[in-house]
Amino acid sequence: MKKLNSMADLEGVRRLLKDQRLEAERQEKLRLEAERKQREEAQLFQRQVQDVTPLPNSNRKVHDPNKPPPIARQRELDDAHVLQESISDDMDVERFLETDDKLSYRRNGIGLEALKRLRSGKWVIQAQIDLHGYRTEEAREAVGEFLRTCVKHDVRCVRIIHGKGLGSVGKEPVLKDKVKRWLVQKDEVLAFCQAPPRDGGAGALLVILKAKH
């Protein structure tokens, strides 16, 4: 301990001890006040819930709320594409057809050899749609959806069975000419021709579709 040499030194020590005592008393008061507030808050909570009956433990598992179903973006895009298409039943399809007995069609840039191979059955039919029993509007939508699905799955050659009209009024094929009009307006279609007899003859068309990529 430091040696006290004068009354001034003694007085300084007294003041230091007094300050330490006062600080200790202040800290104790703060502690007691905090404990008092904590007790009062606990008592207030107990009074608020004293009439509440606790639920029995039923081992229930609380699940997260069901997430909203995902938005089918691609389907929305496909539907928008359908709305943007303008497929007319009245367009003059004859000017697009080859002047052969099969009334074939090929888009600009498609070689004649591809059409010859299609007529001769060299292309393998990978999918088909049968329009028997369809009304015009139903057939139009079905053909559009069929072609888009085929392109999406990289199907290159398909058959569209439109029928010969044997069951129609007047025995005239209702969909035969309409299907040709629809196909020449479809970006997916590169070429088509009447099917050979073994694949439906005058009641069907063979169609070449563009590649997926």
Rank of each mutant, 00 (worst) to 15 (best):
K2W: 12
K2S: 15
S6T: 14
A8C: 07
E11K: 11
E11N: 09
G12N: 13
V13P: 09
R14K: 11
R14E: 10
R15W: 07
L16H: 00
K18P: 09
Q20G: 15
R21W: 12
R21S: 11
A24F: 12
E25G: 04
K29Q: 04
L30A: 05
L30H: 03
L30K: 03
R31I: 08
R31Y: 05
R31C: 11
A34I: 07
R39L: 08
E41I: 11
A42H: 09
A42D: 09
L44M: 15
F45C: 12
R47T: 15
V49C: 11
V49E: 10
V49H: 05
Q50H: 02
Q50Y: 06
V52G: 02
P54Y: 06
N57C: 06
R60H: 07
R60L: 08
R60T: 07
H63W: 05
D64T: 13
D64N: 10
N66P: 15
K67Y: 13
Q74C: 04
R75A: 15
L77H: 06
L77D: 04
A80Q: 03
A80M: 05
D90N: 14
M91W: 14
D92H: 08
V93K: 05
E94V: 15
E94T: 13
L97K: 00
L97C: 01
D100F: 00
D101R: 08
L103Q: 08
Y105I: 00
R106P: 04
R106Q: 09
R107S: 10
R107I: 10
G109V: 08
G111E: 15
G111A: 14
G111F: 15
L115Q: 01
R117V: 05
G121N: 01
K122Y: 14
K122Q: 14
A127P: 07
A127I: 06
Q128H: 07
Q128S: 09
D130I: 01
D130F: 01
Y134A: 05
R140I: 08
A142E: 09
V143M: 13
V143E: 13
C150L: 00
V155L: 09
V155E: 09
C157V: 11
V158W: 03
I160G: 06
I161M: 00
I161K: 00
H162G: 11
H162N: 13
H162M: 11
L166A: 13
G167C: 10
G167L: 08
V169Q: 14
K171Q: 04
E172Y: 11
P173G: 01
V174T: 09
L175T: 00
K178Q: 04
V179E: 01
V179F: 02
V179L: 01
K180R: 04
K180L: 04
K180H: 02
R181M: 10
W182H: 02
W182C: 00
W182D: 01
L183P: 04
Q185C: 02
Q185G: 00
E188W: 08
A191G: 07
A191C: 03
F192M: 07
C193V: 06
Q194R: 04
A195N: 01
A195I: 00
A195Q: 00
A195E: 00
D199V: 09
G203P: 02
G203R: 06
G203A: 06
A204K: 05
L205N: 05
L205Q: 04
V207M: 02
I208S: 01
K212L: 06
